[in-house]
Design a protein around this nucleic acid. Structure first.
Length: 514
RNA sequence: GGCCCGUUCGGCUAGGGGUUAGGACGCCAGGUUUUCAUCCUGGUAACAGGAGUUCGAUUCUCCUACGGGCUACCA
């Protein structure tokens, strides 16, 4: 099968925002496709018209775009195998449903939901472990297998609602070769006659997915593990449709679990977990409820992707940082693990911090300026770039650099703990001396300032552990931050001096000396 | 309940019949620093349990336990 062109699809249903597990599935599909020079296709599985959510489709497309996952073909892109929205392929499915009925591999079923319910209850009462519509029970139901041809025809003609069910053989071993899990064998007696065509004229996932994958020439189906149990039905469908030889290969991905180890991550988890489950922020159009996203929480797409890639996959080396390009090169389905994994928030922070620090001051400033503006700070780009240069070492997310807000406003408050610990009786006179030193520095560079101040402190045997925090307190209002010499060099001599004066005045007014 | 999938440090994971079971994150300690952060060094900590196969099992097989998925006219 390696001669076949690799074509994979990501096929979400637009029932809400994509969550991070979905993004990971898309990513693995994309990586696999690109690794093998293949196509990545986006197909929208909207066969359940009742569950459609406004904006979901756009959200999916925007999420992939934010991550840098490019669609080669599909919704939002076009291509030769369209339409790529299943609701627009209705007629195609109908044709194949008929074909399956004609070949005796599917049948009409007229049972109402009440009748189905009754059947299940009856079986439950009879202590049948798994009540299902199968080779045995179908004999007792209303379908084209039990009804006469005339009856079926008249029911159909009268417009009575019907579904189409696959006729699962009674005794047959169905073998699935999964790239990640190896051979999985399921006996057909454990599978029920799944509905493949609904009474509303739409196919169910099972049939639509098989037909589309075939028609779209999909070579590999890479999807979540939750699909493994229904894969035998899909395999049967390929066989009944006569496509067995061209059946795609399967790879069922382990699931992303909740951090408490209880179940798979789901859209419903929203923000309950202490981290976003969505790539982008989302507002539910019905309830108006808002959910945060990685993008809005300050994650970089490259960090998000790197994190996601490593949840269930690893390159087999000790390298941890991979660009999308590098992921493509390193990726293989064989190196995808079998067991579910939990999102590691701490490590996610670490990744983001790494990517933040890898950015140039210019890039950082571009991202930081909007945040500054939101907080009513303005400054010219060059200045912000320098601030970023000083703050980037201590930030995980862009907004963390707001910690250095004192670069943009004079301090009006002074960190209480530091005041208590460091503001002593002698502080005003230490500062007065320091002020003179600072004023006398001609070339106002960090190195110069440092040398002058340290010389002065040494010469007069003044505690550096007192003088420096005092200076920081007066100029910044806080007890910690980047090198104070760097800070005041950036602030400039004039600003530094005037801050010292202003702060001194404020402190003398408000703070008692310890 | 039934069917299917899984199980290595706290979480993410490497490894694979004989290893001091490796790595990064976190955490702890030390160093550097005016401070915090960074950075450097070191440390902490894991093969779910039981049988079997074998000279030897964390690795292979089976059982049990635990976790997960599926069990809809949802995907």
């Amino acid at each position: 099968m390696s001669f076949k062109k690799v074509r994979v699809r990501f096929a979400p249903s637009p029932t809400g925002p994509l969550h991070m597990g979905g993004v990971r599935t898309a990513l693995y599909n994309y990586l696999f496709a690109k690794k093998h020079g293949g196509d990545f296709i986006l197909r929208i599985e909207d066969t359940d018209q009742k569950r459609l959510v406004d904006g979901a489709e756009d959200y999916i497309i925007e999420s992939l775009a934010w991550c840098g996952i490019e669609i080669d073909e599909g919704v939002g892109k076009g291509g030769d195998h369209g339409p790529y929205r299943q609701s627009e392929r209705k007629e195609i499915y109908k044709e194949y449903a008929n074909q399956l009925i004609e070949s005796g591999n599917a049948y009409y079923a007229f049972d109402t939901s009440e009748e189905l319910e009754q059947m299940r209850n009856r079986l439950k009462a009879a202590k049948v472990a798994t009540p299902q519509y199968n080779g045995v029970t179908r004999e007792t139901m209303k379908n084209s297998l039990t009804l006469s041809d005339d009856e079926v025809k008249s029911r159909l003609a009268s417009g009575e609602p019907y579904t189409v069910r696959i006729k699962v053989p009674r005794k047959e071993e169905i073998r699935i070769k999964d790239i990640i899990r190896g051979w999985v064998v399921v006996h057909s007696s454990k599978i029920d006659d799944k509905i493949i065509f609904k009474s509303d004229g739409m196919p169910t996932y099972h049939m639509a997915n098989v037909i589309d994958d075939h028609l779209m020439k999909i070579s590999h189906v890479i999807r979540g593990e939750e699909w493994l149990p229904s894969t035998p039905v899909h395999v049967l469908l390929y066989k009944f449709l006569g496509w067995e030889d061209e059946m795609p290969e399967f790879a069922h991905l382990p699931l992303l679990l909740k951090p408490d180890g209880n179940g798979k991550l789901s859209k419903r988890d929203g923000d309950q977990l202490g981290f976003p489950v969505f790539p982008l922020a989302w507002t539910d159009p019905q309830s108006g409820e808002k959910y945060s996203g990685y993008r809005e929480n300050g994650y970089f797409p490259e960090a998000f992707l790197n994190i996601l890639a490593f949840l269930g996959w690893n390159p087999g080396t000790t390298s941890e940082f991979f660009s999308l390009e590098e992921l493509i090169n390193a990726f293989s389905l064989e190196r995808v693990g079998k067991s579910g994994s939990k999102f590691d928030l701490e490590k996610a922070h670490w990744y983001n911090q790494h990517y933040l620090r890898a950015k140039s001051n210019k890039e950082l400033a571009e991202l930081f300026i909007p945040i500054l503006n939101e907080n009513n700070y303005t400054a010219d780009v060059e200045y912000v770039e320098k601030v970023c240069g000083l703050m980037k070492e201590r930030a995980t997310f862009i907004p963390d650099m707001l910690e250095g807000k004192y670069f943009f406003e004079r301090p009006t408050e002074f960190d209480e703990t530091t005041m208590k610990k460091k503001w002593k009786e002698e502080s005003p006179s230490i500062i007065a001396d320091l002020r003179e030193v600072i004023e006398s520095i001609k070339d106002f560079t960090s190195d110069n300032i440092e040398r002058n101040i340290k010389d002065h402190l040494e010469k007069h045997k003044i505690s550096i552990g007192l003088a420096m925090p005092n200076l920081r307190l007066l100029t910044c209002g806080v007890g910690s931050g980047p090198s104070i010499f760097d800070v005041i060099a950036l602030l400039g001599k004039e600003e530094t001096l005037s801050r010292i004066d202003g702060s001194l005045e404020l402190i003398q007014k408000q703070q008692p000396v310890n």
